[in-house]
Simulated scan of single mutants.
Amino acid sequence: MKLEKLRVSVAGLGLIGQVHLVNYLSHPNVEVVALADTDPERRAGKLNRLHGNLDEFTKEPIALGEFRSYEDPFKMCEDKDIDIISVCLPTDLHAAVTLKALENGKHVFCEKPPALTSREAIRLTVTAEAMGKTLMFGHVLHFWAEYVEAGKIIESKKYGRSLAASFARCSSRPAWSIGGAEQGWFGNPERSGGVAVDLHIHDADIAVWWWGRPQEIDASGAFIGNMPSVIHSRWRFRDGLIAQFEATWETVTTMPFYFNFKVTMERATLLFDSRNADGLQLATEDKLVSIPLKKAEAYRLEDYYFIDCILHGKPVDRCPPESSILSLDCVLEEARQIAERHRGITSV
């Protein structure tokens, strides 16, 4: 059966928007028809000048002449000749643009986080259901080979239940938005949500995916200026599992980006560190082995999965919006605790 071509648009042509755009351009059942960005140079096709904490970004210019061009993403949402809008905008615009797109009958892929508040995110899921449209929030680690395989091992309980876990995700402060680390939208906590909502949410989402809702959250951290930039957090789950997290936006630009996790089970330990070429490792009583994995571009798998859900009318089970909202709830609680403790320190 020949499948229809879905007409896709991308709102936001920054680092992550370019990654998604390239993926849509490669999909056989997708036609990219429109793009939106406030930067006239990006709309003119100068898309190969960004760098950040991703390896997957465009290295060659993309000819954008055949696409409709919008400066205002809200106007693009009203375009009747669009089936899907991929929202890759600054975080403070995620909820508003996604809502506008859904209300105009579009399917929506929205990059993480879904919103800056849980109430906004819930409204998006309610609207998507009412409009009969597919909504997916972009938590790419659900498609990252090491995290997928680790999740399978944990769920199988082949090595017993999980006893403890630790996660780290650290980088320099993001400087790849227009204006850089200080003047760009990342540097404004009211726009980005700080390190908790932008960076740490990746690992919070993984913990929710693997073990569900935590029973207790205890978080502390540090501010750099007015920006919450360091998180140390401890989650306790109902079965006694303890998960610890570290996430930082460092002040120095030379800080390398890295991420890792360790999961201690009753009869084995899972290890992964992005700085280690051995990939996902499993330590048992008698040996330490690297688990062979088929490497694939996680962002491409994510985008193709979203398109497949729409083409075949399938629910977004692999990355359900409800799980994304729970992850947001957790990091917002951490941010609240950190801000409260920060006020106590600064008021002394």
Score class of each variant (00 low, 15 high):
8 V>T: 07
340 E>F: 07
129 E>T: 13
288 L>H: 07
51 H>D: 11
107 H>P: 04
227 M>S: 09
179 G>C: 07
156 S>M: 05
48 N>E: 13
221 G>E: 04
181 A>D: 08
34 A>Y: 00
244 Q>L: 13
128 A>T: 05
62 I>C: 03
342 H>F: 14
345 I>T: 11
119 R>Y: 06
141 L>K: 11
155 E>W: 06
163 L>D: 10
209 W>M: 04
274 S>I: 01
26 S>F: 00
36 A>G: 07
183 Q>K: 15
138 G>N: 01
238 R>K: 13
213 R>W: 00
50 L>R: 09
286 D>L: 09
329 D>R: 08
347 S>N: 12
240 G>S: 06
294 K>D: 13
102 L>V: 01
325 I>K: 06
185 W>K: 06
124 L>K: 01
44 A>F: 05
168 A>F: 07
259 F>D: 09
337 Q>K: 13
276 N>R: 14
117 T>M: 07
344 G>V: 09
137 F>H: 12
289 V>M: 12
93 L>R: 11
276 N>I: 10
167 F>R: 06
222 A>T: 07
322 E>G: 09
6 L>M: 10
150 A>C: 04
324 S>N: 05
328 L>Q: 05
47 L>M: 07
160 G>D: 01
4 E>F: 00
100 K>F: 00
278 D>I: 01
85 I>V: 14
115 A>F: 01
170 C>K: 14
262 K>D: 11
271 L>C: 08
262 K>Q: 15
65 G>I: 03
279 G>C: 09
86 S>N: 15
246 E>G: 07
160 G>K: 03
138 G>T: 04
294 K>P: 02
306 F>H: 02
345 I>K: 13
305 Y>W: 06
25 L>G: 06
334 E>K: 08
33 V>F: 08
126 V>S: 04
344 G>N: 15
236 R>M: 04
272 F>R: 06
200 H>S: 12
27 H>R: 05
